[in-house]
Amino acid sequence: MILYTTMPQELVFQTDPSEYEKQKIVQYEGIPLLVSMDEGQNCTVLRVMSSDPNHFMNEKCTPGSKITLSSLQN
């Protein structure tokens, strides 16, 4: 299908609002992380949002690792 329009694709095919809620920014041991929420309290780290290069060396929060929200609140 070819769609001839000047409208941006994201306006034509709008994403379901629930998709946006899956991603969240949380603080984990002082490191801001972008996480995607899995089932229940579990979430997967997508991106380290910090500008401190040392935060990228923390093995606990490398992208792809799983963390639980209960450990975030401590």
């Binding site: 994201e10 306006l11 994403t15 998709e19 946006y20 899956k22 991603q23 995607s36 500008s51 401190d52 290069p53 040392n54």
Partner: peptide, 21 residues
């Protein structure tokens, strides 16, 4: 604490409309 910080500007620069995740 590192004395040099690093900002990465990747992907698309998002404006007023939030792009899909």
């Amino acid at each position: 604490d590192s004395k040099i910080h690093c900002l990465t500007i990747v992907g698309q620069i998002e404006g007023h409309i939030q792009l899909p995740p």
